[in-house]
Amino acid sequence: MPPELVEHRNTSTDTNTDTGTDDSARALAGLDALDTPTVNRVPWWRRASRSVLPPVVALVLIVVIWQIVWASAVTPEYKLPAPAAVWDEFLGIVADGSIWSILWTSISRAFLGFAIALVIATPLGLLVAKVPVVRSAIGPLLSGLQSLPSVAWVPAAVLWFGLTDATIYFVVLLGSVPSIANGLVAGVDQIPPILPRVGRVLGARGLASARHVLLPAALPGYLAGCKQGWAFSWRSLMAAEIIAAGPALGIGLGAYLKNGSDFNNIAAVFSAVLLILVVGIGIELLVFRPLERRVLRARGLAGA
């Protein structure tokens, strides 16, 4: 904005001369105009073409290579199916409707497991972050659990809970709780120390401080932890479903994959793996990516 367009009429009578404050107001307006950071907004269609086009091209290339390798017949048919055969298998489960029950079984488990994990991990993470004794006691354990593949818990869980849903949820929780809690701890640790101090000076104490300063300030780290926690819970769920299969458990994506393998149906195995991938990526892209983008952009932490 050019300075001559800014008219600040000073009504205060305390000041010495009217022209003096007018000058000051103009100088200030000029400075603001010069110093304000410029933000370049990229139009959505360009952003979309930049972020959607490359992966689509890559996907098409992979399918083309797959088709070429299959057509060259270097591997026997029962090891590498044709892309068209996998597509037919996929259309088959869509046609007989079993895809919906398979997807629902797995996704509902993953969501419920993730929700329970959130409820456990959030207070746990806050405790570890804010109470030094708790941190030194279980902090290392929490980080250690994060690097332990949760599939290692499946045999023990089967012995404890049998082939029931409890086994599945136990494995999913052990996969995702450490990630979410650690994310929250990292988020709290990365809060600039000046912010809680300012909060205290402005009158934030105890719970008000947690609500108005601590939690919002830790949100980016917490969200990153949730994203990773989701990936871990989805991964653990698949491992559990593949290993622990039984009549009480129904057919989820993992069991569908296991059945395909048991019946030497390589097209079904491929179709299951692709479905697992698509669901995992889909949730990440539809839920976590937009959420994270919003949070980071509001703080000026992500490029437009």
């Binding site: 300012v198 402005l202 300063v213 949070v295």
Partner: peptide, 14 residues
């Protein structure tokens, strides 16, 4: 209530 201003603006970024 006394209130503070620091060298950094220390505004809540969110």
């Amino acid at each position: 209530r006394p209130s503070f201003m620091f060298q950094e603006a220390a505004l809540m970024p969110w």
